[in-house]
């Protein structure tokens, strides 16, 4: 079964597909350049201590993203 989630709801080890980026255009360009594009698969590797940023893997790129920013990214699991 596939459901829409916010990226911040993922648990370490889970993979998902990017569905939408609900962010301002400036940050959207940055996210695009880092590999966040609709249809792209990503994996949550780990979460930093003290409820810190997410460590994500998109293709061959590893990125850290803050939880509150990840909340604005919609993914399909």
């Amino acid at each position: 079964m596939t459901t829409l989630y916010s990226l911040s709801a993922l648990s370490p080890g889970q993979s998902a597909t990017v569905q939408a980026l609900h962010v301002d255009s400036g940050f959207q360009f940055r996210l695009n350049a880092l590999g966040f594009r609709v249809g792209k698969t990503l994996e949550l590797i780990r979460i930093a201590p003290f409820n810190g940023p997410l460590h994500l893997k998109l293709g061959n790129t590893e990125v850290m993203l803050r939880r509150q920013d990840a909340a604005n990214i919609e993914v399909l699991m």
Partner: peptide, 9 residues
């Protein structure tokens, strides 16, 4: 400011 950063190998 939203913040995303690459983690290079």
């Amino acid at each position: 400011e939203p913040f995303a950063l690459e983690l290079p190998p």
